[in-house]
Design a protein around this nucleic acid. Sequence first.
DNA 1: GTTATAGTTGAAGTGAACTTTAAGTCAAGC
DNA 2: GCTTGACTTAAAGTTCACTTCAACTATAAC
Lengths: 145, 145
Amino acid sequence: MRTTDLLTVSEVAERSGIAASALRFYERIGLLDAQRTSGGQRRYERHVLRRLAFIRAARNVGLSLEEVCDALDTLPQGRTPTRADWTRLSHTWRARLDDQIRALTKLRDGLDSCIGCGCLSLKRCAISNPSDVAAVAGAGAAFLR
Amino acid sequence: MRTTDLLTVSEVAERSGIAASALRFYERIGLLDAQRTSGGQRRYERHVLRRLAFIRAARNVGLSLEEVCDALDTLPQGRTPTRADWTRLSHTWRARLDDQIRALTKLRDGLDSCIGCGCLSLKRCAISNPSDVAAVAGAGAAFLR
DNA sequence: GTTATAGTTGAAGTGAACTTTAAGTCAAGC
DNA sequence: GCTTGACTTAAAGTTCACTTCAACTATAAC
């Protein structure tokens, strides 16, 4: 095994928990960079692990890869993000999480009252009225697949 | 406009908020039934609106169409579901909603502590550790698209 | 130097949940 | 009875986020 400060694709895959094929895919859509050996193999700097953790966290929060791209584009290229950078970015997530939690809670409470009243009238029922949830869904984001 | 007790596909689409193409799709996968006119056009009974409200609510809660099929298959065919039927079904949803709310809340609180501590160490951070969320994601369900 | 393992590419495939298209048919109002 | 708008079908297309494939090449350990 090599002992440089650079990581191979399978090392990054294992450490990040993201499949090698996904790493190549991310590179193709411009979400991830890699150096190359003389033979053309990828070698990753360690900071990609943080970037990947960021990407995964963002995906968990319901952002699409496109949104992650946009978010990361607002970060300074090359330097480690400052606390201010991080705070700015995380505000988006925070708001999103709050919205999702609110919508789900409302859905749950609506469900409770349905059970409680036995109304069976789904079309008037809170749970079947998805306006709040729809507002949260945003532009085509897939959440928690 | 006709004045029978049956609804056309576009009427159902408008009242349910589900596109006509989706209604045809649902019929193809066995999720929805329709009578036919002598000429072959679909005519829906009014109770499909409740079924569709159910389907939409289930989708909002994160169930896949396959799961919705399974859920609806546990309901008695033909008769209006009783309160017991409804309670049984909604238990699944309730548990799911609780799980999702818990996971999202944990994620949000982890994010708060990241901002608070300025750690920037995403890989050790609660928000980048998706174990709880992953557990909620289930079998390929798309949530809040 | 040989060999096993890990890596490379572009292109095609996957699956969920639909939507769109094309070519034609039906129903309602006048 | 004719026109207009709504309806029908099967098949192909779409989007997202990847994965799989086939054919080939590089690297590391011995």
